[in-house]
Design a protein around this nucleic acid. Structure first.
Lengths: 206, 206, 206, 206
DNA sequence: CTGTAAGCGAGACGGTACGTCTAGTCTTTTA
DNA sequence: TAAAAGACTAGACGTACCGTCTCGCTTACAG
């Protein structure tokens, strides 16, 4: 606790006020949960966060940017592959469960759904969402999956095949969640992984 | 040519003006393609269609309703399983191709993406979209898939398993399209169907 | 009581809502008296009048236009030369008194002072103020003065001289009011008129 | 010449930076000429002067104070009664001409018009303007006029009469300039002085 | 065969949020 | 300790749409 104590909140100096930053992120998140995406407005965030609109515009270009900032903060933590000594299959199932739970989680899941929704409306949002979050997460998932498959001796050489195998398991989860609006139960995830592993073995033998 | 001549357009009588209806649907579609979802506004539609705002509100509750009306008209046609004497597998692949093409089509695909996007923002849109379009289409696809699997002697008894098998093939396509923003090539669709059929056979043997 | 009764106020049709118009004019006037010129804002007027900002912008370009509208309504009435059987000199003094009182009146005087103030800040306001109010009033005052001088047999032939004579009596009043912030008492006005009449006679003899 | 070297400009020491002061005054004046009164903003002055906003607020309460500072500097010099051996009447006419020219001068005249304009909007500005500039100038003009009248043997005993005589000549000039937006030509000034002198003589005989 | 009721184009209305601008305050860092 | 730099809260600016409304016209059907 040194000089940073001065910036606890309240007023600010020439450097960025960290308290204001977090207040904005939290306010946006709260509004999304309480009132949905249309209820997230720059004015609403400002009021709720006790912050001037100009302060938001100084650091973020739009409400989408604010939400994306939230997602980058929360999502990368919640979707990391944890260190584990479980069997490869179990580790894979457990990651799939983590993804499914994340998609339906109260705060972070709503943010992600809102951003995917907006990405479908707006090309620029799509790009930001993918580059700011999705592709990073995808890299981590591909690496995790590769490790699992290597332990099971069915890792493909071709990276594109690995991507196909990943999409075989996460595609249906997302489709059910985002499009159908349905959760995927544990059994389904297990069968999905089994089917994919069978396919991986078939492919590797060719 | 009797009473319809009066309703050709221009002005109207006590019955609904069909010209105005189509002009509204077309204007909404055009605006979506030209300016994206945010560019579709009630005022914009009214101006472009040469129609009073009140006329739109008389027949549709919101711009989402207008777009959904469009989708119901176009989508059900473009996604029907055609009568064909091809092999079951080929028919399945061809339907999958049809879906993939539809998702990326200029007009109808944009409408569908916009509606899915809005469904992710708004519960009510989600419900309308599913009940007005998605569930109907899903029923047709489930019936088509069942027929294919029956011919291949691997149709499951349980309807829920059939749904899982359907999601195995359409889930990844949608995920790539909606979330990753990538097209799925023909090869991928073929391998996807093969993997699903293998899984169906495994399941039916149990 | 015919069809116009429908537009008493509340909501409006495709024609201008007279109630809203008057509410805006009154709100602007009230704000000016209560809070001064800086306290007259488009938002404040809108709130006080119970009117949407867009409604103000639809009919007036700026708050200056609103105030000018007020002045045109009030000023032309308060500064008219009334029909009178008093002596010419008395009529002139009485008009001068009327002007002096007007300049210091609660509502209309404040509006006029505000507009002259703004005219000194902004060329466009100056032009509007002059063309919308000042020059009309000046014409009436010149006509009134000419009549008075004719009855006293000292009306100049040259219009420019007439203007000079007018400015001899109204210039000091305005200077004291606008620049010095002082009222001119009745005695002063009387002496001012006497001096001017003496000058008019001198001039006419040449 | 010791510590002043440090205060040459750029950065500053513990004492007031004279360079900054002048830069602020000049910037305000420039902005007024270039963009009008509304274009004179604290931010604009700060930017143009290369000075921090806080520095302005440290020494002046508002932009009006800055402009008034300018006027006090320039106005008192430009409006002084010079020593002259001309006839009294000519000296008076020449002072009147000086005033008229000042009101229409590029820099100082604009400042004065702006301040009078703002004084009409705001009581506090009015007071500052009068006490900081106007009343001082008026004292000088009254003294000058008294001297002229004494030489012509028609100086009134009553100071209030002297003020009235002054307003007879400067009132119309200001009215034409500030309200009508018109210049007064030399001839007019001459006739105005003649009329006033005639009135002074009439009054003194009573 | 005529009134009446509905659909229609037009557009004014009260609102909400937008993104920008400036005000005036405060804090940090430099000299 | 003055000054430059600039982040901060506050609030008005003028614009764009929202969804509701009123108007005046046109036209189909009912009495």
């Amino acid at each position: 606790m040194k000089s940073t104590a001065a910036n606890s909140f309240g007023h600010a100096g020439p450097h960025r006020n960290e308290g204001a930053r977090q207040a904005v992120l939290d306010a946006a998140d709260d509004l999304l949960v309480e009132r949905g995406f249309a209820g997230v407005t720059m004015e609403g965030i400002a009021t709720k966060a006790g912050v001037a609109k100009q302060t938001i515009y100084r650091w973020w270009k739009s409400k989408v940017d604010v939400l994306l900032d939230n997602l980058e903060q929360d999502g990368e933590m919640a979707l990391a592959w944890p260190v584990s000594d479980a069997t490869p299959t179990d580790r894979l199932i457990s990651q799939l469960t983590r993804i499914e739970n994340f998609l339906h989680s109260e705060a972070a899941g709503k943010v992600m759904q809102a951003l995917i929704g907006q990405a479908l409306h707006d090309r620029e949002t799509a790009q930001k969402f993918r580059e700011g979050f999705l592709f990073n997460q995808r890299k981590r998932d591909l690496a995790g999956l590769r490790e699992v498959l290597e332990e099971l001796d069915c890792a493909p050489k071709d990276e594109r095949v690995l991507e196909e195998l990943l999409d075989q398991i996460i595609g249906p989860i997302h489709y059910r969640s985002l499009v159908l609006g349905q959760r995927s139960d544990q059994e389904l995830l297990v069968r999905s992984v089994e089917a994919m592993l069978r396919d991986a073995q078939v492919r590797v033998q060719r």
